[in-house]
Amino acid sequence: MSTHAPSASPSAYQRIYVWELPVRFYHWLNALCILVLTVTGFLIANPPAINTASEASFSYWFGMNRFIHFAAAYVFVFNFAFRIYWGFVGNKYANWKNFLPLRWTQAKEVAKVLRVDILQSSNTPLVAAGHNALAYLTYFVMFLVFVFQVASGFAMYANMSDAWFPSLFTWMLPLFGGDAGLRQWHHLATWFFIIFTIIHVYLVFYHDYVEGHGVLSSMAGGWKFLPKKHVDGDGKSRFSGQRAAKPAGAAPRSPS
């Protein structure tokens, strides 16, 4: 009648290592970069009136601010590139295939998450060791925005730099009718990150609060705590989304 059968015992919980160190490292460095890029970006957009110096040569704060933006941009790009790499060599929770709900099970899970967590029209517990399928999808969308932000940023940066990397993106300019148009979209995309972060952090707390599986701390230590019956049996799959398809000795899931 319910997943939480009265027969459950304390030992039904298992500690699993979900987020490997590189993923955690990536996550926090990424979060830091985005914080820095957003703050410096908004300063670029709306510089405050700090007219303390009477001579331009006494100060370089605005130039420095832009420098930090560009420096953080490079860190951000390489960190992101690293995460893509890790999507191929990391554990199954980190695998790139999770990010697109191409499999039927993933698609079903997306619908389910919407029902359970977002609309709350269902209370069927939903347990995911990695992210749930909707979360993965959201991260994928976010990665696309990362790509846009990098491409637009470097396209604008290209003419301030002699490096070859930024010049790879100059094709963006005509596409957006020139720098002015591109800059506005770059600015708008910043809001995507802000809004993503609000939702993201809220949902992390939500899951931790509602499910108590240690999601919040998982990005620090790497471990989550899940009911045993939801944990993969063979542990060999490199794809976390297959979990639902091969529940190892799990009780039948409740109808919902």
């Binding site: 939480h4 059968a5 009265p6 027969s7 459950a8 015992s9 304390p10 039904a12 919980y13 977002i118 709350q120 209370n123 517990p125 609000i198 939702i199 809220y202 939500y206 609060y209 509602v210 499910e211 108590g212």
Partner: peptide, 25 residues
């Protein structure tokens, strides 16, 4: 939206929140 959702959660998921049967020895 998040605030609303949080309130809703506390109402609708009232029973899921906190200790579940069998979770504590």
């Amino acid at each position: 939206g998040a605030t609303g959702h949080a309130i809703l959660t506390n109402i609708r998921k009232h029973h899921e929140i906190g200790e579940q049967p069998g979770e504590s020895a």
